[in-house]
Design a binder for these strands. Structure first.
Lengths: 287, 287
DNA sequence: CACCAGCTATAGACACTGTCTATCAAGGGT
DNA sequence: ACCCTTGATAGACAGTGTCTATAGCTGGTG
């Protein structure tokens, strides 16, 4: 059962005649006879009742007609969907949880203004999730933390984001120009569990001979910020611009910084990815 | 875009590999490469992202996958529907309005007992409608009034049905052995508008020099019966067995009778029609 | 860094089959 | 009884889907 046979069948059924259908389909009448005969043999049931003048659908033929129309409709629908996609492609962007929505919103907004036909789907996830999604094709490009081993063929740097100490603006640290690691000893500390550096913190604290007091830990950046703002503690974190009631204090003996950039798949041919990369590179990142 | 290409596409998409799909489909891997390439060219968009290790669906490919599954499902559905039809064919029987359901119910019931897999659809209609439905293939066989010109290739007689006078059992006529046409003069008469003889009645009455009083006319046989039963009048009509409160009185000088039989199309190959014809012939018709 | 294993793309040959022309057989209408 | 129309059949041909052989590419490995 092939598409051409269904097209033939439907035309014959509609016109009630092999000859007329042959004219309309721009093929010869014997081609129709053979095609329908094969279809009937394959289905094991007669679809047309041959009469002296034209043909008539058998009961089975009428059953077949209804469904066949649905099949042809779906063929047309899938073509239409793909045309729709070509006109309005959907770019799926993976974004790291610890990148603030605010930064991204500016980029997405500007991109959409320049490429209004591209729909952007944001998929928020953790570092490993983003990599998996990229590998599995669930996202087309990711804005994520770049590591040294990342190839320039599959990634590009956007900006460096320093990690400094965030304290409530009411805290005594907020008036200092800088602090040292040892100053953190005994201070209430809020652990950011999703931070890529989190695993290295115990060693860091140990080597400095300090022991901050972990009062809270959270996987949610926004909650961490709320906790700091409420005066519950402090945390080493990327600088998020325009956060009220929070002050960032540089750390003299610690220069943590993470590289944020785009990652994609090497063989990726989706043109919207190229547009997005180019656009993100040209974007003025205020970090 | 052909069915085989869709099948290929779906298998590759599922397994994420041309080679594995080729093994599963029992074809060679180059056949898949060529087939998918043609599909992509026809659709004008890339469906797979070729990577060193297997392939991945592009965004467009994912769009296509969803719809393609629907198409394959419909192919399977139409086959299943036809298998269903072969097992449980539907025989569409046209029946004349003026044939009482009761008579037919016996036949249908007995037929269904012998052919339990055949579903019967009854289509009630007037003489001309039945002929049209038969010609248009909307019914497969009709139980209807046979006329002289009907060919034995497309019709067969079931029984003759005499038309006699039906009167309320309380009427004085009900005690008579027979009546004559002239006895109808001035009597309240109920006209059966769907009767095939209706057009000949005025001439009939005129030639007998009588003028019955047409008190009601109806296209609905059941209503006519109800009216007679209620004592509103009498009517010449086919004998319907076991009607309570109604008496049939033979008419001495009128022998109307209609031939009831089956009609079908000459090239009709639907086997259920042959079964029904055979069964109806063997049926014991109590008229 | 070169090698190997695994995967897809390409090229050319072949076989299948959908289509064509020519013709036949059957029904319907005059 | 004749003719016209319609669908079925036969045989030739062309288009194409599939095959084998092979090249090109990628990713992992010693």
């Amino acid at each position: 059962m092939d598409l051409y046979q269904i097209r033939y069948f439907l035309t014959i059924a509609e016109l009630g005649s092999f000859t007329k259908a042959a004219d309309q389909l721009f093929i010869s009448q014997p081609s129709l006879s053979v095609g329908i005969k094969k279809l009937e043999q394959e289905l094991g049931i007669s679809l047309f009742e041959r009469r002296g003048r034209g043909v008539l659908l058998t009961p089975a033929g009428q059953v077949f007609q209804e469904k066949a129309q649905g099949i042809v409709a779906q063929y047309q629908a899938v073509r239409q969907d793909l045309e729709q996609f070509k006109e309005h492609p959907t770019l799926r962007v993976g974004t790291l949880h610890s990148i603030r929505g605010y930064n991204l919103a500016q980029l997405i907004g500007a991109f959409h203004a320049e490429y209004p036909n591209v729909t952007i789907e944001l998929h928020n996830g953790y570092l490993q999730e983003l990599q998996d999604w990229l590998d599995q094709g669930k996202v087309d490009v990711s804005m994520t933390w770049l590591q040294e081993q990342d190839d320039s063929n599959t990634s590009q740097l956007l900006f460096h984001q320093p990690l400094t100490l965030a304290v409530p603006e009411s805290h005594t640290f907020a008036r200092l120009r800088s602090v040292k690691l040892t100053d953190l000893d005994g201070q209430p500390y809020i652990a950011r569990l999703n931070c890529e550096f989190w695993r290295s913190y115990p060693k860091l604290f140990e080597s400095a001979g300090i022991e901050p007091q972990i009062v809270y830990s959270s996987t949610n950046e926004e909650w961490v910020i709320s906790l700091i703002r409420a005066g519950m503690g402090m945390s080493i974190m990327p600088i998020w611009t325009d956060l009220e009631c929070i002050t960032y204090v540089p750390m003299l003996d610690l220069s943590l910084s993470r590289a944020i950039g785009l990652k994609w798949r090497s063989q990726q041919a989706f043109e919207a990815v190229a547009w997005f990369r180019e656009f993100a590179m040209a974007h003025d990142w205020q970090v």
